[in-house]
């Protein structure tokens, strides 16, 4: 994590993240640790450490079985092969063929082309037609999910690590796709950490 005295950015800018759909990679503990700046004694109050949005480690909507278990395949593995002549986007998810066939889609009644470029699925576009690289996906999310984007900007949506006091250290933030699969964004249900066992323990204590 680059540490430097940058000017405060009011709006968080994603820094060239590569995409991932490996849902909840962060949840599973793959995220880099919190930045620590034990030695950073910055006394200039106007100086601010940056807020860095977490870069998802790799991108894939495809997972395959391998000796090491389920492995996500980066998009570029395939899409770089037909950069010159990209396959056209189907109208509906059900029409997907090839490696993407059978992909689960649950993101409202949105057609593929609402977000993906019709001629190149590895690129995105805003409602205005402006083309975006995958790395700018958060700008695409926020055009529909305004309240969430606003809360994110004000630190009340989306996980973070690091310093509350940015005059003393930087902060790392989650990317939308760290938690939300863009094709099925609803947060999935999963088993929580174990329930409290304080009272059971006390009852089992010796010399009772």
């Amino acid at each position: 994590m680059a540490r430097g005295l940058q000017t405060d950015a009011a709006v968080v800018r994603p820094e060239t993240p590569r995409w991932t759909l490996a849902l909840g990679a962060w949840l599973l503990g793959c995220a880099p640790g919190a930045p620590r700046n034990g030695d950073g004694a910055v006394h200039d109050a106007s100086a601010r450490f940056p807020v860095v949005v977490h870069r998802p480690p790799s991108l894939s909507s495809i997972e395959v079985d391998s000796d090491a278990g389920r492995v996500a395949i980066p998009c570029e593995n395939c899409h770089s092969l037909f950069r010159e002549n990209p396959p056209a986007l189907p109208a509906r998810v059900e029409e997907l063929r090839g490696p993407h066939a059978g992909m689960r889609f649950a993101h409202g009644a949105v057609p593929c082309a609402s977000c993906h470029e019709r001629t190149d699925a590895t690129r995105l576009h805003l409602a205005t037609g402006e083309v975006l690289p995958m790395t700018e996906a958060m700008s695409l999310c926020r055009q529909c999910h305004g309240p969430q984007a606003r809360d994110y900007d004000h630190g009340s949506h989306g996980g973070m690590r690091g310093y509350w006091d940015r005059s003393r250290g930087p902060r790392a933030r989650n990317h939308c796709v760290d938690c939300h699969d863009p094709h099925a964004p609803h947060f999935p249900r999963f088993q929580p950490m174990p329930p409290p066992r304080d009272t059971a323990w006390l009852r089992s204590a010796p010399h009772g």
Binding site: A34, G155, G159, G162, D165, R166, R168, F187
Partner: peptide, 14 residues
């Protein structure tokens, strides 16, 4: 020291 509490950093949803 200016850092976040551990419970906040652990929260996956923010």
């Amino acid at each position: 020291e200016g850092r976040m509490p551990a419970c906040l950093e652990a929260c996956p949803t923010g």
